[in-house]
Design a protein around this nucleic acid. Structure first.
Length: 117
DNA sequence: CCTGTGACATAAG
DNA sequence: CCTTATGCCACAG
């Protein structure tokens, strides 16, 4: 095996797609954090990549990016949605309480892929 | 190979 | 919770 596998663009299974896969696994009415997803993928320190993956998701409506928030439960990425309040609307539509861009009852709504899967 | 980037996480103030 | 700074890592060019 070559340890020097620069640019692992193999098999089309990029780190990004894995993020999308996990995002799709998020149950309705639940939320998770970028770090949790990153950790589940084996890259706990790549939480930023998770967010960046979402940025690249553009168009992948299959990816419920609105269910992914930062550790505080704040809708940090809402700026990337088309509507300023679109993200919140989506969350509320799933029965999630959102106040001032922050998810309420986060401890109850939080969904950890490491724990649930 | 190097540089830039980014929707985080953590620490310190 | 805020800002500021640092780390960290994968990907694009």
């Amino acid at each position: 095996m070559k340890e020097n596998d620069n640019t692992r663009s193999e098999s089309g299974t990029s780190f990004f797609e894995r993020v999308y896969e996990v995002a799709k696994l998020i149950p309705h009415g639940r939320v998770t954090s970028y770090g949790a997803i990153a950790k589940y993928l084996g890259a706990a320190r790549s939480a930023r990549m998770v967010g960046w993956a979402m940025n690249a998701c553009g168009g992948r409506e299959d990816v419920p990016a609105h269910r992914v928030v930062n550790r505080k439960g704040i809708l940090t990425g809402k700026h990337h949605f088309q509507g300023t309040n679109l993200m919140q609307q989506l969350l509320e539509s799933e029965g999630i309480e959102v106040l001032d861009n922050q998810i309420q009852n986060l401890d109850t709504l939080f969904w950890d892929p490491m724990k649930e899967l």
